[in-house]
């Protein structure tokens, strides 16, 4: 039964450096976990990208995608300011390489990777990504704070940002002002558990900016699937959150 297809926007592969009760060391392990949960497809980044750096993280993402012969995975690379000359494609070449390697979106980890997301550091790159509509993921922890995320959105009003891992203990006061004022911010649901919260956001702002993400391997796939399944929203909105919005965003990225 495929009544509601799920496309996970926030899934991580690899062996967490500090261990974890659950993890998927390789592609087969991850696909087995997706099968258990009934997740059709997932955007995959590497679990140690923040701690271990963008270059090894991207390397292991590439390997995972090569091993995914059924093409259920889409990659997410991590980028840095290109003046650092690290081994990450830059300029127009970035998009060409993304397309070639089945990379659909990007992430940034400024706190762990010791740079500041100002125009001075990454303006030219972000302008190009805005032009092409590429979705950029960051977590509250990796951007540093909600304040830092607001600054990012205000500095780069044309870029599409996905904010993930928003903290269990309530983020409505952070996310609602963003939904009120910009259509470039997307919310990932792994840590948005507030009772009847999904339906409430949809009622206020529509479903187009809300995306299912698991946060695996630290969070399960199943708990938020059940929440979405029974949220009091239309089936069309449910489908958008479970997979449709992500499909659309990936399609709109001009790589």
């Amino acid at each position: 039964m495929e009544d509601l297809a799920f496309f996970d926007v926030n899934c991580q592969i690899g062996m967490p450096m500090c261990g974890s009760l659950e993890y998927a060391a390789g592609t087969d392990d991850l696909l087995r976990e997706l099968d258990f949960s009934g997740i059709g497809r997932a955007v995959v980044s590497h679990v140690n990208t923040a701690s271990g750096g963008a270059v090894p993280g991207n390397h292991f993402v590439n390997r995972a995608l090569r091993e995914d012969t059924g093409k259920r995975l889409v990659g997410c690379w991590c980028i840095l300011p290109d003046c650092l000359n690290e081994n990450i494609p830059s300029g127009e070449n970035l998009c060409r390489e993304m397309l070639k390697n089945r990379i659909g979106m990007l992430e940034i980890c400024p706190v762990s990777h010791r740079w500041v997301p100002h125009r001075t550091a990454i303006g030219r790159q972000f302008d190009m990504l805005a032009e092409r509509g590429v979705l950029i993921k960051t977590s509250v922890q990796e951007i540093g704070s909600w304040n830092a995320f607001y600054n990012l959105v205000e500095r780069f009003p044309r870029n599409r940002f996905l904010i993930t891992n928003t903290n269990l203990w309530g983020c409505d006061r952070y996310i609602r002002p963003l939904f009120e004022t910009t259509d470039k911010v997307y919310l990932e649901l792994s840590e948005y558990w507030v009772a009847e919260g999904i339906a409430n956001l949809v009622k206020r702002y529509g479903a187009d900016h809300i995306l299912y993400g698991s946060g695996y391997p630290y969070w399960t796939h199943t708990s938020q699937m059940m929440n979405i399944k029974h949220a009091q929203i239309s089936d069309e909105d449910r489908r958008k959150i479970a997979c449709g919005n992500l499909d659309q965003l990936l399609k709109e990225a001009q790589l």
Binding site: A195, T220, S223
Partner: peptide
Amino acid sequence: PWFDEYQAVGGIVGA
């Protein structure tokens, strides 16, 4: 009202 009943039940029946 911090967490949704369906979220938590999903975490139990999906364990």
